[in-house]
Computed example of a mutant assay.
Amino acid sequence: MNKTLRHAVTLLLAGLVLVLGASAASADNGPIKLEVTGDGGHNVNVVATWKNGKPVEEIVEATLTAKSADGRSFGPVRLMSASEGQNVYQPAEPLPNGEWNVTVTATKPSKAQAKTKVTAQDLAASPMAAAEAATRDRVAAADSDDSTDSSLLKIGLIVLVAVLALGAFAVIMRRRGLYARR
């Protein structure tokens, strides 16, 4: 392979690495936003997104505290990754029955705080709440799958364009006589 072709291939591969690296790094900068909702039962769902709306793919370190109107307190309880989605978190312990003013405080990957009111109750007491929680779970799982599919599609398209560009470059070099087999 002659020197010009080697340089072109090196530049193409370096550009590909920069594009892939830049897109991965750009998604994970800046402040995060927390959305806190009750699940209709004794649990709380916390969805972590970057301010640009993309899901936080890093591990979020956060705690939940709660105060009731009658003076009871709950927490701090550490949040754990939930099975509902990549950027969904739940407290390690369920909330006791009652009306709660919930505060979630994140420290990593950036500081954030969110507050909401939640009613914790047995799901048997509220069939509508159970149906709403199941719908939210399906939506969160579908959103997580969509973002993964979108990322894989983007990477595939970038690789395809790079291969086509390299092939076109080789054909041009061969026709101009700069690419000679030795």
Score class of each variant (00 low, 15 high):
Met1Trp: 04
Lys3His: 09
Lys3Val: 11
Thr4Arg: 12
Leu5His: 09
Arg6Pro: 05
Val9Met: 12
Thr10Leu: 06
Leu11Tyr: 10
Leu11Gly: 07
Ala14His: 03
Ala14Met: 07
Leu16Arg: 06
Val19Cys: 00
Ala22His: 08
Ala24Cys: 01
Ser26Glu: 09
Ala27Val: 02
Asp28Tyr: 03
Asn29Glu: 10
Ile32Lys: 04
Lys33Asn: 06
Thr37Pro: 00
Thr37Arg: 14
Gly40Thr: 12
Gly40Trp: 00
Gly40Pro: 02
Gly41Lys: 05
Gly41Ile: 08
Gly41His: 03
His42Tyr: 02
Asn45His: 10
Val46Trp: 09
Val46Ser: 01
Ala48Cys: 05
Lys51Asn: 10
Asn52Pro: 00
Gly53Gln: 09
Pro55Ala: 04
Val56Trp: 06
Glu57Tyr: 00
Glu58Phe: 07
Glu58Trp: 02
Val60Leu: 09
Glu61Met: 06
Leu64Ile: 12
Leu64Tyr: 04
Thr65Lys: 11
Thr65Ser: 15
Thr65Asp: 12
Lys67Gln: 15
Lys67Thr: 04
Ser68Gly: 15
Ser68Trp: 08
Ser68Tyr: 09
Ala69Trp: 02
Asp70Gly: 09
Gly71Trp: 10
Gly71His: 11
Gly75Asn: 03
Pro76Ser: 08
Leu79Val: 04
Met80Tyr: 00
Ala82Gln: 02
Ser83Cys: 06
Gly85Phe: 02
Gly85Ile: 00
Gln86His: 12
Val88Pro: 05
Val88Asp: 01
Pro91Val: 11
Pro91Tyr: 03
Glu93Val: 15
Leu95Thr: 13
Pro96Cys: 09
Pro96Tyr: 12
Glu99Asn: 15
Trp100Ile: 11
Asn101Glu: 15
Asn101Gln: 14
Ala106Asp: 13
Ala106Val: 06
Thr107His: 02
Ser110Met: 08
Lys111Ser: 10
Ala112Lys: 06
Gln113Phe: 04
Thr116Pro: 04
Ala120Ile: 09
Gln121Asn: 14
Gln121Ser: 13
Ala124Glu: 14
Ala124Asn: 08
Ala125Trp: 04
Pro127His: 08
Ala129Met: 08
Ala130His: 11
Ala130Asp: 10
Ala134Ser: 14
Ala134Gln: 13
Thr135Gln: 13
Asp137Lys: 13
Asp137Cys: 01
Arg138Ala: 15
Arg138Trp: 00
Arg138Ile: 12
Arg138Val: 13
Val139Cys: 00
Val139Ser: 04
Ala141Val: 03
Ala141Ser: 11
Ala142Val: 04
Asp146Thr: 03
Asp146Glu: 14
Thr148Asp: 02
Asp149Leu: 07
Ser150Leu: 07
Ser151Tyr: 07
Gly156Asn: 07
Gly156Ala: 06
Leu157Cys: 05
Val159Ile: 15
Val159Asp: 00
Leu160Val: 14
Leu160Asn: 03
Leu160Tyr: 11
Val161Phe: 12
Ala162Asn: 08
Leu164Ser: 07
Leu164Asn: 12
Ala165Pro: 03
Gly167Ala: 12
Ile172Ala: 11
Ile172Glu: 09
Arg175Asp: 12
Arg176Ser: 14
Gly177Cys: 07
Tyr179Phe: 13
Ala180Ser: 10
